[in-house]
């Protein structure tokens, strides 16, 4: 019982932390910090509320397999997007096809209304 309350308190503290950190300008680290805190919350829920710690190895494998496959999906898909000409555009009128998506280079991406 006590353990659950401690975990709950930690979760709420992490919620406060993620909210607070969002108001600081950390550049790229904002995303990293937010995801790290979310991962920490997730770990707490998994290990304590879902009893993953006391669970059969199979439960660990199920979660691990799901996460691994999602990681592969992210990784290999970004191999594609990351190696196309960069689609990042400065603030502009355009919303058009991601440059390279249709086989063109960024300089071809003409403004489309």
């Amino acid at each position: 019982m006590k353990a659950y309350l401690f975990v709950f308190a930690a979760l709420m503290a992490l919620l406060g932390a993620t909210l607070g950190l969002a108001f600081l300008d950390l550049g790229a680290l904002n995303l990293v910090a937010a995801l790290a805190i979310a991962a920490a919350k997730a770990a707490l829920v998994l290990l304590f509320f879902m009893h993953l710690r006391e669970s059969d190895g199979l439960a660990w494998i199920a979660v691990g397999a799901g996460l691994t496959w999602v990681a592969i999906l992210f990784g290999l898909t970004f191999v594609d997007y990351g190696s196309r000409p960069s689609p990042r555009a400065p603030v502009t009128e355009i919303v058009g096809p991601l440059p390279g998506a249709l086989g063109e280079s960024p300089s071809d991406a003409a403004p489309v209304k």
Binding site: W69, I72, L76, V79, D80, Y81, S83, R84, G100, A101, L102, G103
Partner: peptide, 18 residues
Amino acid sequence: GFLVWGHHMFVSGMSMYA
């Protein structure tokens, strides 16, 4: 088998490196 799906997309406009 989970790692190879892009071979269906070689000529789709996917990057050559992928």
